[in-house]
């Protein structure tokens, strides 16, 4: 479904992603693990087209020089030069890290905006009801301003927003970052629900343990370079991986 080939990204002369090859097949949940500054967020932003947008923006104002080399294919089509909203139309939707929401809009309005590109209002409403099913705590917060919700609630809103956009490939950037164990459990549970919707998921995380049982395959990157990849079992059997990313 998604096929990233020889991806290299430079910010000025600093290498953020180094010759990365990564693929996601339809129906899978794939995890990308790595420490801070490993290039996870850059990878996600690039697949969603945000890095490209930033590149144009910086170029326009003569700021930082961003270079993107390599191929990004989605469903057999090269999307390397597609704009972010083109990619959303194709079905790639990113839920960014640190649960970003539209803080002055209500929870319901936030979810509505997720369906911005969907023409039929009925479909949007269906998806919103589905999000309330996946995240029951949101039902009580419908008219609360999103900026006043807790971090966990904002994460639910952010994932919900991405789901309302009806993704084929959902990108989750560090969905568990900064959440309490209870909230983490809710998000991990939601991951199972998302799989049953036949949505393919590519997610990143620093600390792999809570999410590991639910993924099919994983990639481990360090300083922008892929150091290991394999199925869940292969990764769990590797003692180095266990100590570095699972704290065991």
């Amino acid at each position: 479904m998604l096929d990233v080939k020889n991806l290299m990204i430079f910010y000025e002369n600093a290498l953020a992603v180094n010759n990365l090859n990564l693929d996601v097949k339809k129906g899978e949940i794939v995890g990308v693990f790595g420490s801070n500054s490993a290039g996870k967020t850059t990878l996600m932003n690039t697949v969603a087209g945000l890095t490209l947008h930033m590149k144009f923006r910086e170029h326009r104002k003569g700021g930082q020089r961003i270079t993107i080399v390599g191929q990004q294919n989605f469903e057999g089509e090269d999307i390397s030069n597609r704009s972010p909203n083109d990619r959303v139309k194709k079905g790639i939707v990113l839920c960014r890290e640190r649960h970003p929401v539209f803080r002055d809009l209500s929870v319901e309005e936030n979810l509505q905006l997720g369906g911005f590109l969907i023409k039929e209002q009925v479909k949007v409403q269906e998806s919103i009801d589905l999000v309330y099913n996946i995240f029951p705590p949101l039902t009580k917060l419908k008219s609360r301003r999103a900026g006043l919700c807790s971090g966990g609630e904002q994460e639910m809103i952010a994932i919900g927003m991405a789901l309302v956009a009806r993704p084929k490939l959902l990108l989750l950037d560090e969905p568990l970052l900064g959440l309490s164990p209870v909230m983490q459990a809710i998000v991990v549970q939601a991951l199972k629900d998302i799989r049953s919707l036949e949505v393919t998921v590519l997610l990143t995380e620093q600390y792999a343990r809570p999410i590991m049982p639910h993924i099919d395959r994983g990639f481990i990157i360090e300083n922008g370079t892929l150091i290991m990849s394999g199925t869940k079992e292969e990764l769990m059997d590797n003692p180095e991986v266990m100590s570095a990313y699972f704290g065991m």
């Binding site: 945000l50 909203n85 990113l94 970003p100 002055d104 509505q112 905006l113 997720g114 911005f116």
Partner: peptide
Amino acid sequence: TKTGLALLGMAQDEYTALAVGIDS
């Protein structure tokens, strides 16, 4: 209205708005 909400969203958080398909 959808357009109005989208404009408000873009004003509040550009990159999140981009991620749900709103063009800046």
